[in-house]
Every structure is written in structure tokens, then in C-alpha cells.
Amino acid sequence: MIELKDLHIGYSFQKRPSTSSGTVFENLNVEFNKGELIGLVGDNGIGKSTLLKTITGNLKPLKGTILINGKSLDTISAKEISKNISIVLTDKIGGFNLTVFDIVASGRIPFLNAFGQLKTEDEEIVKQSLENTGLAELSNKLIDELSDGQRQKVMIAKSFAQQTPVILLDEPTAFLDYTSKQHLFKWLKQMCVEQQKTIIVSSHDLEILFKNVDKVLYLKNDKTFVFGKAEAIKTYFA
């Protein structure tokens, strides 16, 4: 379970001198439970990506706390976080001979020995993630040779291979075709139900999002938020 308590998110003043305070969103108080598929919606620049990066520890909260299963994120080591939360970012990855297999296998890094050698069980998990995302045939392809949609799937497969109880996906449907979007939400839903994972998905594809998620966190332009069942939040977009 993830709890956000009086959470202020944004960038420290030094990093963003152009903004007066660097605060992107304030006073977030939300609880995400096990087995829930959660949608994160709001306009561009409202703070969806910032929130997801703050929950993974990539950004420090400006104020307030994040609790993971009752433990404050500050007190959890980076290694422990990596075994609990995985993220799919919007950043484009490429070059350096990286193949689809290499990237998906990087999801196993938190579990590997000092030299980063994959064990048989790790390879099995990677293969399973590749199959689940329909990438098995592209396994040996260089990431640079793939379309944006395929790249997106590779990063999602990496996140699956990390096998964390919490998965955060930042606009995972951005480059996907309609069928792939439907498949993605089907897998996500299945993982929430069967493996009791907590999955948060930010997206601008409101139609498909509201159809599939259990709850929605809506970051509004007036810097307030609403959180609740998908059907209830949908009324704000009517």
C-alpha cells in the first residue's frame, strides 16, 4: 500500500530558477491499495510525471511523506525501493548496442550479483515478460531499430521483469495502437487481480483509461485534486 501524506511535489529552487518556488503540486493526501489499478489524469505540466518520479524516489518530496507499506520512503534504501517499485518513463532509450532482451533483462538488475550476471531463473522471467508483451520475436533486435510503440512495450516489459508489487507507468499508451492499448490494460488488470499489484498509470487516453481502471486520481488545473472510483471521477469530464 502507498500513502501520500500532505505531499508537496516539485523541483528544488536551485534546479528550477525560472519558477518562483519550484512547487508543482501541493497537499496531496491519497492512499493506493494492493490490487488496485489506478489512473492518473490531468493536463500537461500539472505534475503527473513529477508525482510518479517522487513516488519512486527519483525526486525528493518538497514537503510531506510517502509511506510504502507503512515505511517512510526516506528510510528505505534505493535497492529496497527498486525491489518494490518499478517505473516506465517517457524518456527514449537507445544506442550502445542495446537489444530488446538487454533492456528487459535490466529489470532484473536489483536481483543480480556484483557482476550483473543473469541466472537461469532471471532469464526465464525475462523471456516470460517478453512473451507477455508480444516481444519474444524481437528479442535480439537493437532497440534503435524499433518503432516508438515497440520501444514503449520494451520498457513496459522491463518493468514487468522487475517483478515489483508496485508499478508506475508514465503515459505508457502514448505511442501504442488501439489493439496494443487494449492488451496493455488487460495485462495490467490481470496483474492487479492475480498478483495483487498496485499499478498507477498516467494517460491522456481517457476513454480507454476510465473503461479499465478501478480508481482515478485527477490533478485539476486549480491545483486541487479528486480521487475516487473511476465512474465517479468520470463525471468531471462529462
Partner: peptide, 24 residues
């Protein structure tokens, strides 16, 4: 430097992903 192999593999993605993979 051989012991840097694992963190370097993570860093090939980018710094944000490396951090999310438990790398300091």
C-alpha cells in the same frame, strides 16, 4: 572497474532508470 559492470549496465538506460534499478 569489473565491479562497476552492473551499475554501468543500468546507466546505459539513463540516470532515472538506473536509480529506479537500485543504483546510487
Amino acid at each position: 572497474s569489473l565491479f562497476l559492470a552492473k551499475p554501468l549496465n543500468a546507466l546505459l538506460l539513463n540516470e532515472s532508470y538506473a536509480q529506479n534499478l537500485g543504483i546510487n
